[in-house]
Simulated scan of single mutants.
Amino acid sequence: MSRFGTSAFGQLIVRLVLVSRWAMVPLFVGLAVALLLLVIAFLRTLWMFGTHLFVLDETQVIMALLSLIDLVLVGGLLVIMIQSGYENFVEKIDRRQATNSPEWMTRISFSGLKLKLFASLLAISAITLLKALMRLEVDVSEVQVRWLMAANVIFVVAYAVLALTDRFAHADERTEE
C-alpha cells in the first residue's frame, strides 16, 4: 500500500504519476522530426560527395564515406530511441495494428536498449576518432586526438561496466526465481 493509502489525494497523485508519461510524446515526435532533418542532411552530404567525387583525393573520399556512415549511425540511434523509448516509457505498441514494425522491437528490453544506445555512441565516437586521425596532418592537433582517444576509452570502459552490471543483475534475477 502507498504512503497516501487509498485517500482521494493519494489516488490523484498516483493518477498524475501515471499520466505524466504522456509528457514524453512530444519529445519522441521531436526526435522523429529530427530524423527527417537528418535524412535531408544525409542526402545533401551524399549529393555533395557524388558531385565532387572526381576531384576528391583518396583521403577525402574516405572522409566523405565516414561522414555518411556517421549520419546513418545517428539515424539508427534516433530510431532506437523513438521506438523503444515510446514503448518503454509511454505505452506498448500493438503489433497487430503495426504490421510493418520490426520484429526486434518486440524483444528489446530496457537493458538491451541501453546497450544498443551505448554501442551506437561508441561506434560514432570511433568514427569521429578515425576522421580526426585522418585529418591529423591537415587541421587536427595531437591534443584533440588525445582527447578523442580518451573519450573513446571512457566509452569502452563504461560500455563494459554497463554490460557487466546488466549481466550480474540478470544473474541475480535468475537466482531469485
Rank of each mutant, 00 (worst) to 15 (best):
A98C: 04
A8E: 05
K92A: 15
E177A: 15
R95S: 11
F49C: 00
V79T: 10
V29W: 08
L31V: 12
A98Q: 09
M81R: 11
G85T: 13
A160P: 03
G5N: 02
V61G: 03
G5T: 04
L43M: 07
K114D: 05
I108K: 06
A98Y: 12
F28L: 12
F42C: 00
G75H: 08
F49T: 14
K114P: 00
A41K: 12
F168G: 04
E103V: 12
S7W: 02
S20P: 08
L122N: 04
F9P: 00
F155I: 02
R135D: 03
T6N: 12
L37F: 10
I154L: 14
D172G: 07
V33A: 15
S7C: 05
L117H: 03
L37G: 09
L68N: 02
S7P: 01
L78R: 05
T6W: 09
M1N: 03
I62P: 00
L46R: 04
E142Q: 10
F4Q: 09
F89W: 13
L36Q: 00
A119N: 06
E137Y: 07
I82Q: 11
W22H: 08
S67H: 03
F89D: 08
I69T: 10
I124T: 07
G30S: 07
E58F: 03
L113F: 14
D139W: 06
I13R: 01
A98R: 10
L68I: 03
S7M: 02
V161M: 11
D166R: 04
G5A: 05
A171S: 15
G112A: 07
L129V: 01
A32W: 05
G75R: 07
M81V: 11
A132M: 12
A98G: 00
S120Q: 09
V79G: 09
R21A: 07
W104T: 02
I13D: 00
L38W: 02
N88Y: 08
W147D: 07
L35Y: 13
G10W: 04
I93L: 15
L46T: 01
V157K: 06
K116R: 12
I13V: 14
V39F: 05
A23H: 02
K92W: 14
L148S: 07
F110G: 13
M149R: 08
V153F: 08
D172A: 14
A132T: 03
V145H: 04
A126Q: 01
S120F: 11
G76H: 05
S2V: 01
T59E: 06
N100A: 05
V140G: 02
F28K: 00
R3G: 00
V143F: 09
T51C: 03
Q97K: 12
M105K: 09
L129C: 04
R146Q: 12
A119C: 02
S84Q: 15
F168I: 14
E87W: 01
M149F: 12
L133Q: 07
V61Y: 01
I69E: 06
S109V: 05
E142I: 09
M48D: 09
L12D: 08
I154P: 00
M24R: 03
L46P: 01
V29Y: 09
V72F: 13
L66Q: 02
L56H: 06
L136R: 14
A171E: 15
G50A: 10
E176L: 12
L65K: 06
S109E: 06
L38Y: 06
M63Q: 14
R135W: 01
M149C: 07
E177K: 14
T128Y: 01
L122W: 10
E142V: 13
G85E: 11
L12S: 08
A169Y: 13
N100C: 04
V74E: 10
